[in-house]
Amino acid sequence: MNTALSDLEQAIEPLRKRYIGQRVGPYLAWNKVSRTQIWQWCAAMGDTHPEYLGGETAIAPPTMLQSWTFRDVHGDYAPGSTDQNTYEVLGKLDELGYFGSVAVSYDQQYLEYLHEGDHVHSFSTISDISALKNTALGTGCFVTELAEYFRQDKTLIGTATITYLKYQPNQTSTGAPPSSPRKIERIRPVENTDSQHYWQGLRDGKLLIQQCSDCDVSRHPPQPMCEACQSINWHTVESTRRGKIYSFTSIHHPEIPPFDSPNCIVLVDLDEGVRIAAQITGVKYDELKIGMPVRANIVEVQKGLSLPIFEVEQ
């Protein structure tokens, strides 16, 4: 850790002493489990599982767990709840400048399903406040809350461990609010006078291989001069898109959007005598083998960008 972070750490240490391990509650549900609330949840989630609303007694989807004892729209807890605010520590972090807040992980255990008429109450404990970390959003710490949920008969029906990142948002030089979210697309190739024919060929549904017009040697990727005879005269031949796997890998980590993971990549020795790197789909990564016969389809993967994508030839 560098010195800057350790100085900031000192302000957080007292919060750890004060809040970690303190169990507060009970927090009562505003309402008993009801068909109406279950219906609203199922409608919003598009959940049509027959068990929830199909029987005489409605059963709550277990994922509703945390919502039962939430505050109402005005921020008030139901009558009979404790006055202590389990989230007070988050306010203290706001005051220290870590006002950004985002839930990063969630772990819920469902011990019992709830039925219409059940009445829930909960207790909450701050279980951890991490060391300061530099994250993509900004510097901050992770705060973990453990919530326990009980039925009216005091049976523990579920637990939820929620981790929030409290952070100081990264400053940008302009300070302007971000514009609309940008969908992540594949990086587009740069097309110059040496390679434009190749990318245009793919848009036209053809895999074009450069061939020397003087000595007939094929080459890929495109380059302006034949390395065998130094001729700058060339033409293209349309590939049959057939070949054999020369080598392969599958990319598992990091996951790079927008690609699927694992993303399987092959080097293929095409029948035309050149080697090409491309994706392969329709095969599991651990089933790829050197020497497998493959054939490429030309796929428009993005508007204006077409690529050869191989599949195993049966």
Binding site: I187, F248, I265
Partner: peptide
């Protein structure tokens, strides 16, 4: 340009091809 549009864009993936061979 012959690699990035396919997601083939990390040194680990490139060297993995040699390793496989």
């Amino acid at each position: 340009s012959h690699y990035f549009p396919t997601g083939f864009m990390t040194p680990a993936a490139w060297i993995a091809m040699c390793t496989r061979r």
